[in-house]
Structures are given as structure tokens and as C-alpha cells.
Design a protein around this nucleic acid. Sequence first.
DNA 1: AGCATATATCTTGTAGTACAAGGTACTTGC
DNA 2: GCAAGTACCTTGTACTACAAGATATATGCT
Lengths: 120, 120
Amino acid sequence: MADTDPTETHRSIGRELKKGSLELVVLSRLVRGEAYGYEIVSELSARTQGVFDITDSTLYPVLYRLERAGFVSIRWETQNRGVPRKYYQITPKGLTELAALRAEWSRYVGAIQQLLTSGD
Amino acid sequence: MADTDPTETHRSIGRELKKGSLELVVLSRLVRGEAYGYEIVSELSARTQGVFDITDSTLYPVLYRLERAGFVSIRWETQNRGVPRKYYQITPKGLTELAALRAEWSRYVGAIQQLLTSGD
DNA sequence: AGCATATATCTTGTAGTACAAGGTACTTGC
DNA sequence: GCAAGTACCTTGTACTACAAGATATATGCT
């Protein structure tokens, strides 16, 4: 077993940081207007200069969760040219959730900031 | 199967938010001086007014990970009165890691902030 | 003495999650 | 024809926070 790799200290920090904030980010995007999955993936990476870099196999389960909870609604667009697209829109319930997530995020970031700058 | 609970939307948001930032928080605490597990648990909750609330069964695996990676060192203190305490100190390697985690955290928070305030 | 409570550590099992890897379907360019 | 890009979805894996429980020592109460 290759269990004693000295270089295997912290495989990927950012991976775990995304947990819990993905819903917030996606819902926040949908406030600006409807969008489809593939669009969101490439947009997030571009807008954050690659910091928030996710794959489609990460996003689709997120969208499915949001849909199942009633935070987004779906509209299929089978256009003449190209693969059919599944457009997602934020619902009133989703807007409420977004406000809660924003508050939670602020509280959490504030708490960590307080811990990091504890010059006590 | 109780799978269709309407009230089961987002069990606990904060739970997932902690992932990836626990190492940062713990190492940051140890810069102020050595501490033992039970102490850290109660201190974090108090310092953040209950926002960053973890249990000991969450912290101990974290400390074990940090120790295994060489980011903290251990000193047992078997005093006359009370249960023996396991004191943790941050190592030079841990200080380097802390700097990296701080940078990663800043980048990540900055990226999200940018996404949330995109008035475009 | 007996027993609950607080301190302090550790282990096991569970649910949730990001992501790699792969699959399907349609369209355009070579 | 066929590779590459777009766009969707599924399965399996590694990691994680945490509940639940176990263990040991000391103090307070009856």
C-alpha cells in the first residue's frame, strides 16, 4: 500500500471549501436570469479567474438538488440547431433560500475572520 | 422509505461550510500558543458566539490529520489532578501550511464575494 | 459508599459531497 | 466518414462532519 507518500499532505484544499457554498453560488447566478448547466460551469470559472472551477459532473447533482427542493424551475428548449438545453430559473422559494444562504455565509465568514485576526 | 419529506430541504448548511476550513481555524488557534483538544472545542464556540460550533468527535480526527502531516507536535501532560491532557503545538511546517491555507481562503472568499456582488 | 456530573480522550458507523470516468445525443468542420 | 465540440446524465470513489458510544479521572451530592 502506497500509504506513506510524503508529498500527500493536503490533496486539494479548494475541493472541500466548495462544499456548502455551491448552492449559494448557483442560486446567486440565477438571479441575473435563467441559464443552462453547461453555461453555468464555464461562466463560473471565467468570472472567478479559475478560482471557482467546477466540472459538469459536480454541477448537475447540485441543480437536481435545487430542483427537488423547489428552489429552481425547469424549461426545456429544443431548438432546431444544437442539443436541447435545460434552462433553470430561480423560484420565489429559491429567492428566500438564497437570502438565508447569504446570511449564513456572512455569519460564517465573519466568524472565521474573527478567529484569524484574533490579536489577543 | 421516508424519502419524500417536504421539510427536509437543507438539513444543515453550516455543516458543509466547515469542510476545508477546519484545519485553517485550528492551526490559526495554535499560533497563539499550545492547547489541548477539549480546550479548542469550547474556545472556538465561545469566540465565535456559537457560529463555529464543533464537537470533540469532529476535532480529534482533525488533530490526528494535522499530526500525521507534521503540522503539529504533541506533548502529554499527566498532572496529579484531572485526566491527562494532550497538548498540541504548531510546527514550522505547520506555519508554512497555515500561510498557504490563509492565502487559499482569501482567494476563495474573494471569488465568492465577486460572484455575489456581480451587478452586471 | 454510591452515583451523577464534568473533564478529557478515542473509536465506529453514517450521511452527504465534489469529482473522475464514462455514457448518450446532436451538430459542425475537415 | 469521423473527429471534435456542445449538452445532458449516471456510477463509483475518497473524504468529511458528526452522532453515538466507550473509557478514565476527579468532584459534588445524598
